[in-house]
């Protein structure tokens, strides 16, 4: 398979057209344009900052230019590590015998460590998983792909967020009632996040 696909992809890009101009000149032209835009943007920000300083200075009291005390300072709150948990929501859309499964999730996990030892940035929650598995509940082959979990060993930063998986479609061969199961694994969670839903095909 890999050779087949590699060969086909190679054929697709076998005859690239020549670049319309010298590549480095085109890139540096864009760099100059971007610099001009950034400079213009910085001027606007500086003007806004000056206005903000002026507005704040008007709110100072007479005593050593200190701001007026409107309320007592907030007391520090003791924080405890959040419970790591992810709730997965399944929303199937049935059209005839074809089902489109929309999968979303929300929860708190630990950011995994990538191959280079760097922590992955906060992003779509589902992209932070250690892998997933699902079954359409019929004769089709269940899907499963998990990494070995070593990326979680040094994970330490909690991340609370939401995420989605690209919608997946499946066509059932026969009418019936099927149970779709989805499972995903995240750093910080002892058990996988799982969800099931019943699909009725008429």
């Amino acid at each position: 398979m890999s050779d087949y696909l590699r060969e086909r992809l190679g054929e697709l890009v076998a005859d690239p057209p020549p670049p319309t101009t010298v590549p480095s000149m085109a890139v540096f032209a864009r760099v100059r344009t971007a610099r001009r835009r950034r400079a213009a943007g910085a001027a606007v920000v500086a003007a806004a900052a000056a206005v903000a300083v002026f507005a704040v200075s008007g709110n100072l009291n007479d005593s050593k230019s200190e701001p007026p005390v409107l309320a007592p300072p907030p007391t520090p709150v003791q924080t405890t590590p959040p419970p790591y948990d992810v709730t997965v929501t399944l929303k199937p859309v049935v059209k005839g015998r074809t089902v489109t499964m929309n999968i979303s999730a929300t929860g708190t996990v630990l950011l995994p460590i990538a191959a280079g030892g760097l922590e992955l940035p906060a992003q779509n929650l589902m992209a932070l998983g250690q892998g997933s598995a699902y079954s359409w509940g019929d004769d089709s082959e269940p899907f499963s792909a998990f990494s070995n979990g070593t990326e979680c060993v040094k994970a330490k930063t909690p991340y609370k967020g939401t995420g989605t998986v690209p919608a997946d479609t499946h066509t059932y061969a026969r009418p019936g009632i099927y149970i779709y199961t989805y499972r995903a694994k995240f750093c910080g969670m002892k058990e996988s996040a799982t969800a099931t839903t019943q699909i009725q095909i008429k």
Binding site: A114, G131, S132, A145
Partner: peptide, 11 residues
């Protein structure tokens, strides 16, 4: 910018 598990899933 994702985990190896996600890469495997996507493949």
């Amino acid at each position: 910018g994702c985990s190896v598990g996600t890469v495997k899933s996507n493949i």
